[in-house]
Computed example of a mutant assay.
Amino acid sequence: MSFVQEFREFAIKGNVIDLAVGVIIGGAFGKIVDSVVKDLIMPVVGLVFGKLDFSNLFIPLGAVPEGIAPSLTAYRDAGVPVFAYGSFITIALNFLILAFIIFLMIKQINRIKREAPAAPEVQAEPAEEVVLLREIRDSLKK
């Protein structure tokens, strides 16, 4: 079998295709969750804590050149090292929400699997020796 044929077999297997679909859907789902966190949740959290832009919370760790606007983007563009804890909190919250949603999805999938009716058991044919022994037993009873 040639290298190309082996690769083709590998690439066409169901698991690889399932994985590719999962990665694509996961990427799109990640963008949705990111938008929920960034556009819906973090503004409310920022309002509660009195900050308008929660992701812009940071502490400059180096000397700040004069004339630079005090924003995370401006400091990063100027090469000032920053401790961007607001961005970290946003990403951590994003992760927690995503993990919670996946937990709920898996929980529902497991519930649906448990509720599926069990297939009726098919009784296996007895071995030939068992059938012969039963015939002998039945003939002795007569």
Results as ranks from 00 to 15, higher is better:
S2D: 14
F3H: 11
R8G: 07
E9A: 06
F10G: 01
G14R: 05
I17G: 01
D18T: 00
D18C: 01
D18S: 03
A20R: 01
G22Q: 04
I24N: 01
F29R: 00
V33I: 05
D34P: 00
S35C: 08
S35Q: 06
V36G: 01
V37N: 00
D39A: 03
D39V: 00
I41L: 01
M42C: 01
P43D: 03
V44Q: 09
V45H: 01
G46L: 01
G46Y: 03
V48L: 15
L52E: 00
F54I: 07
S55L: 11
L57K: 09
L57P: 03
L57I: 13
I59Y: 15
I59T: 15
P60V: 10
A63Y: 08
A63P: 10
V64P: 05
T73P: 00
A74N: 13
D77N: 11
G79D: 14
V80T: 10
V80G: 08
P81Q: 06
F83A: 14
F83W: 15
S87E: 09
S87V: 05
I89F: 12
I89V: 10
I91P: 03
A92L: 13
L93G: 08
L93S: 08
F95Q: 11
A99F: 07
F100T: 09
I101C: 03
K107V: 10
K107D: 09
I109K: 12
R114N: 05
E115M: 14
A116S: 10
A116P: 02
P117K: 12
A118F: 09
A118W: 08
P120K: 06
V122H: 07
P126G: 06
P126Q: 07
E128N: 07
E128Q: 10
V130K: 09
L132D: 09
E135T: 02
I136H: 02
D138L: 06
L140W: 03
K142Y: 05
